[in-house]
């Protein structure tokens, strides 16, 4: 009897037994977890700060934010919603790419196959289409909110400029994607849209032909728009989004600045006092 208890303990303390009984705790103690997640649990101030410092995905956030930013009204979360929509587009677009050939007329047949012969094909296409339209709308609303909030003013001028580039990239992505189904709607919308390019000064119709890869919207245009849509513009977009969010961190939240100005307004002169500084 006396010799059983230690043996039972040995079994209970064995790695396999713990892994079965308390998999979560065992995993947290494992070398794999310890090497990937280096911060303590985020249940103390120190743990929370360490979590931000030691996590790649969280380091885009500041460790602490002004309490004002928590209010929905502070930013309406429009920039964040646009980013989420971009991620939704990124993932749904990847799925669509598996079933699509950027060639005439195969592209159109692929669209039909997508709605009849591919699991969730129509659903994923719907997601891609509606989130694309939503993203254009949300990006425009984001621009309007930032303007009316005066959040483009120093030191955020450059981030506004990146924002304008992001708007153009968003429109470019939406427009190039519009041609890909290769139906009447796509063809004539792009024909109307690109006819404008024929009026570019100096280059004239050459500009349109460079864009289309030929005199009219055809197979070359489809391939060009496809490459822009799935390679060049998304890469540009990711880069610009990263810089944009990074600058928000570096420049600080506009909401936080406003409080200082409110405080400064309340007392006609900025509140200053002479503070002796010991050398």
């Amino acid at each position: 009897m006396a010799s059983r208890a230690p043996r039972g303990g040995r079994i209970r303390n064995s790695a396999l037994f713990q892994a079965v009984l308390t998999p979560r705790e065992r995993f947290r103690k494992s070398e794999l977890y310890g090497s990937a997640i280096r911060h303590p649990r985020p249940d103390t101030p120190r743990g929370r700060a360490m979590t931000s410092f030691h996590n790649f995905f969280l380091h885009v956030y500041p460790v602490k934010v002004p309490r004002k930013v928590l209010s929905w009204r502070s930013t309406l979360r429009l920039g964040f919603i646009a980013t989420v929509l971009y991620l939704v587009l990124f993932v749904s677009g990847l799925y669509l790419m598996f079933f699509y050939h950027p060639a005439v007329p195969q592209a159109y047949f692929d669209m039909h196959n997508l709605s009849t012969g591919v699991a969730f094909g129509q659903f994923v296409r719907n997601i891609h289409r509606w989130s694309a339209h939503l993203m254009v709308a949300v990006v425009i609303l984001h621009l309007l909110r930032v303007f009316y909030a005066g959040a483009y003013k120093a030191p955020r001028q450059f981030n506004w400029l990146i924002g304008v580039a992001l708007l153009l990239a968003t429109l470019g992505l939406s427009f190039t994607g519009y041609l890909l189904p290769w139906d009447q709607l796509a063809f004539w919308a792009i024909t109307v849209g690109t006819n404008i390019a024929g009026y570019v000064p100096i280059l004239g119709d050459h500009a349109r032909q460079i864009l289309l890869g030929g005199p009219d919207v055809g197979g070359n245009a489809l391939l060009r728009f496809y490459v822009l849509h799935i390679y060049l513009l998304p890469a540009l977009m990711v880069l610009l989004i990263c810089v944009h969010i990074w600058r928000v961190r570096k420049d600080g939240f506009a909401v936080a600045d406003r409080d200082e100005e409110v405080a400064a307004d309340a007392t006609a002169e900025p509140e200053t006092e002479e503070v002796p500084v010991d050398a």
Partner: peptide, 25 residues
């Protein structure tokens, strides 16, 4: 001894992003 004019600083009214900000996101 140097005399330096310094702006009076209010205590920062900030919160940790976890959980306050991340949960909202």
């Amino acid at each position: 001894r140097e005399i330096e004019v310094r702006k009076k600083q209010e205590p920062e009214d900030t919160v940790f992003i976890w959980p306050h900000f991340l949960v909202r996101h």
